[in-house]
Structures are given as structure tokens and as C-alpha cells.
Design a protein around this nucleic acid. Sequence first.
DNA 1: CGCAAAATGGAGATGCGTCTCCGATTCTGT
DNA 2: ACAGAATCGGAGACGCATCTCCATTTTGCG
Lengths: 223, 223
Amino acid sequence: MAVNKNVNAGARTVRPRRRDAARNRDALIAAGRELFDANGLTPTLDDVARHAGVGVGTAYRHFPNKYALAQAVLAESVTDMLDAADRAAQLDDAAAGLAALFDAVLEPQAAKRALGRVLRDAPDTAPPVDDVHTRIENCIDTLLERAREQQVVRSDITATDIGVLMSLMGHLIERFGDVDAHLWRRFLPILLHGLRADAPAPLPGTALNTEDFISRLGRSTQP
Amino acid sequence: MAVNKNVNAGARTVRPRRRDAARNRDALIAAGRELFDANGLTPTLDDVARHAGVGVGTAYRHFPNKYALAQAVLAESVTDMLDAADRAAQLDDAAAGLAALFDAVLEPQAAKRALGRVLRDAPDTAPPVDDVHTRIENCIDTLLERAREQQVVRSDITATDIGVLMSLMGHLIERFGDVDAHLWRRFLPILLHGLRADAPAPLPGTALNTEDFISRLGRSTQP
DNA sequence: CGCAAAATGGAGATGCGTCTCCGATTCTGT
DNA sequence: ACAGAATCGGAGACGCATCTCCATTTTGCG
């Protein structure tokens, strides 16, 4: 082979971003972080662009839509969250593990007001957001099995049940988070206690299957 | 006083609606019921008008907005709901009463897909919707006091805590109701069990005050 | 009947967020 | 220093729901 000017030989040829482009991209992410952390996903991509001191067109060339920018902004929080979830799944005490898992999933959502929305509603997801559902579900599966062995949850609870509860708590954070960012911590013990093993009667109905659960997770609330 | 042509002497003079107007109004309510029951609040007032075979202008003269029409459509469900709630509040067994109260509030929301949204988001409410919050809160207060006496709930639970839980369940219905309209029944026992008296540690943080609770109840979910 | 008041209906104004287009500007390799 | 490519910026097109305006039609009283 002749001279290969591109360092990135194996991957698809990628010429480095121009310096002004990189600067603008960074400015957009910074502005996005600022606005999204403070106001959730309410601000428009136009808002973020203005706040970053660039034109709307620039914003839309760098990020196809608000959610793409939000994913860039929140990438680190998401990987942190997944790490924390994995750590929770490794706890031998299943009850503690479940509590830690809820914590791992909810605490970041309470800290970053846009995170919950991105996790649930982003129209097209990229790493690391794209496999949050799978990864978390694995953690749930692991802990749930362990919890059943240790008899610390009622046996008719399924993984999607836990998922539903997590999404409910996420909703609680979204709805009441600006009045009291820690309110979810108040309800977590109630929930966890409710999941405990001493069940007088089996849970009515059947749990959701994973597909239905995922499908309804996204933007459902109507006009 | 001279002759009073109007039968409705005491109230503000109200001349009877013209026959075509009454017909259209009824058609709108019927069409609204049909569309709202099937699709929640998604359809626009324009949709309902078309479905009722009347012009948009007509719809907007009869009802200032979608929520006003929805309230007319759902009025009966709401009074039924309040009756059921009052009945629940009269049960001597506080645990059963609480369960019945949740049922009274949630079952209608599951049956009428638009109800939850109206209860939470309607921008201006008229009877009987306007005092749902007060009436329900009274029921909660009554039952909660009784439940504490009977030691069937942990003593650190407040009325707004119950309200928050009700709103969460309402959200569950909205989010997952079209996949499984009865899913909420699966989670109710978990919740109720979680509220029970054997508390290993006090609930963290403080409960919401009523004002904050009400204020955050409305349309919060963002773009 | 006849006529004034009431009611109609639907085109289109308004508002809001999303996103595109393209002439102007700024970079970068030579 | 210069050409050509890459990037910028923001006016405005678009989609969608909400709501208004007023020329026309319907009603019902006298």
C-alpha cells in the first residue's frame, strides 16, 4: 500500500474537525449542560445555540436535534450510572443490592434534570444511552434472582415490575423534583418495603412483558 | 316588580338555549366522549368538532377549550368518583378504607382515559372537577387519622404522601394503561403494604406541603 | 310571515418549537 | 498570500394545535 495520510487507518476515514467547529461544538455542549441542568429539556436547541453564541444552523449541523445534544451532555452521567448499577448488582445482600440499584438509577436523574427524559424519550439513542435499558435490566435480573433465593422479595415480582417502579420514581422526580429534589428518597423505603416477602395474597394480574414495558416507556403523556 | 318572563327568577337571567345550539352542544359532548374515551386527550377540539359534524367555531363558542369540553364529558364520572371516595372514607376498617379510596380514585381513571389528565391539568376547573382535590384530601385525612389510631400505617406518612402516591398511580395508568388497563391493580398491594406500620426506620426527608403538592400536580412533563 | 337576535362554520391568524437553506465568512494546506 | 473547502448564521419554511372573526344561515317571537 502507498502512503496513508490518515492516522486513523483502520476506521472509516475521518478528517479532523476544523478548529472553529470544535470550539463551537464544545460551546454548545457547555451551554446545553448549563441550560439542561437548570431547566430539564425545556429549552429549545435554538435557545442553547443562542446561549452558546452560535447560530441555530450551526447547532443543527452539530446535533440533529435536542436529544442528540442532551446525550452528548449527559454521556458521562450515564456511564457513571451504569457503573453504579453494576456495582449494586454485585452486592451479595440482595435487599441492599436492590436498594442500591434504585439509588444508582434515580440519584443521577434527580441530579440532572434532563436525564430521565433522555433515558425515556430520546427518539434515537447512541452509546452509552442506547443500552441503558439492557444493562439495567441485567442488573435487575441478577438482583431479583438473588433476592428470591434470599427470600427478601415476594416471589411474584418480575423484572418488568421493578422497571415499572423505577419509571414511576423517575416520574416522581420529574414532577416534584423542583420542589424537593430528594422527595424520591422518601418513597423509596415505602416501595422497597412493599416488595418484601411476606405476601398475604398474590399480586393480581400479570406483569408486563419486556417489549410492552419498553414500548410504553417513551413519551406517552399527551397534549 | 313587574312581570318576570324568566322562570329562573333567583339566578342570573338565562334565556333558554336555542334548539340548534342545544343539539350541537349535545353532539359535541357525545363526540367528545367517544374520542376522549378511546384516545385520551390527544384529539384536538377541532377533531371533536369535525367528528360531531359542526364547525370549529361552534365548538369554541360552546367550550372555551378542550378541557372545558372534557369536563362536561366527564362530569358524571367525577361525581361518581367523589361518591365512591366518600364511601371509602366511611369504612371503619382504615386499611380497607385506604384500599377502597385508592380504588375509588384510580379505577375511574383507568376506565376513562382522559380523566386523569383533566383532574391534573385542566387550566380552569368548574364543578364538579374544581373541588376534587379538596374532597379527596378530606377523605385521605379522615382515613389517615383512623389508620394511625388502628396502627395500620406507619405514623410518619402524611396526607400529601398519599396524594403523591395517588398521582404516581395515575401516571402509571396513563403510561401503561393502553397495554394493560389493570396493571395498576398489580402495584396497589405493593404500595399499600409499603405503607404499613412496621417501620424499621423513619422516612427520610419531609413530606410536601399541600400547596407544593397541588402546584406540581399539573402539566409538568416537558417537551 | 318577516325580521332581529342567535348561532353557525371554516378560512385563516397566532404562537411555538423544529429544522433547512444558502450567501457570507473563516479556516487551512500549499 | 491565496484558493477552495469547511463552517457559520439566521431568516424563514414547516408542522401542529389553538383560537378568532365575520359573512351567512337558522331560529323563534310577534
